[in-house]
Amino acid sequence: KTVHVDGVEYRFNNPEEADKFVKRLVKEKNGNVEVRGDTYHVE
C-alpha cells in the first residue's frame, strides 16, 4: 500500500499499518481520502 500526503509518498508492507496511518492523518487534517488502486491520497 502507498499513501500520498502533500506530495510525499509513504510505503507500507502491512496494509493494517497503512490504514491506521491514513485514519490518523484524516483526523489531524480533517481531510479526505481518495483511494486509487493500491494508493491512498490524503488531502
Rank of each mutant, 00 (worst) to 15 (best):
V8G: 00
N14C: 13
H4G: 01
V35I: 13
K29Y: 15
K27H: 09
T2L: 07
G37T: 08
E9C: 15
G31Q: 07
V5E: 01
K23L: 05
E17L: 01
E9K: 02
V35Q: 05
K23Q: 13
E34T: 11
H41G: 07
Y40S: 11
H41L: 14
Y10Q: 05
Y40D: 07
H4T: 13
H4Y: 15
R11E: 12
L25M: 10
K1Q: 07
E17D: 10
N13D: 14
T39M: 10
A18E: 06
E34A: 09
H4P: 01
K27S: 11
K27W: 05
D38R: 01
Y40H: 09
V33A: 06
E34Y: 08
K27C: 15
N13M: 08
T2I: 14
N14R: 00
P15H: 10
F21K: 01
V22M: 11
T2H: 04
V33F: 07
D38F: 01
N14H: 02
E17P: 00
T39S: 13
K27N: 08
V26E: 09
H41F: 15
R11M: 06
V42H: 06
N13L: 08
V35A: 08
E43D: 10
A18F: 09
N13P: 10
K20T: 06
E43G: 10
E34K: 09
E9N: 01
Y40Q: 11
E28D: 07
D38K: 04
R36Y: 13
H41Q: 11
G37H: 07
K23R: 06
N32R: 12
N13G: 05
V22H: 06
E9H: 01
V26R: 04
Y10S: 06
P15D: 10
H41S: 07
N14Y: 02
G7R: 00
N32A: 09
A18K: 06
L25W: 02
G7C: 04
E43K: 09
D38N: 07
N14T: 15
L25T: 05
G31L: 12
E43N: 11
G7E: 02
V35C: 15
N13Q: 11
D19N: 03
G7H: 01
H41R: 03
R11Y: 14
V22F: 09
R11L: 10
N32L: 10
K29P: 05
V33K: 06
K20I: 12
D38S: 02
N13E: 14
V8F: 07
F12K: 02
E16A: 07
F21Q: 02
K23M: 06
G37V: 12
T2F: 08
D19W: 10
K29C: 15
V8M: 05
D19T: 01
E43A: 11
N32P: 04
K20D: 15
H4I: 15
R24L: 12
V22W: 04
H41T: 07
V26C: 15
N32W: 14
G7D: 03
F12A: 01
V8Q: 03
V42M: 07
V3W: 01
V26S: 07
L25V: 07
V26N: 06
E17G: 00
N32C: 15
G31C: 15
K1Y: 15
V22A: 06
V42K: 09
E16N: 02
R24P: 02
E28Q: 08
R11Q: 10
G37C: 13
E43Y: 14
V33L: 12
E28K: 05
N30A: 09
K20F: 06
L25Y: 04
E17R: 00
G7M: 00
G7W: 00
E34P: 04
G37S: 06
V8P: 04
F21A: 04
K27A: 13
Y10E: 05
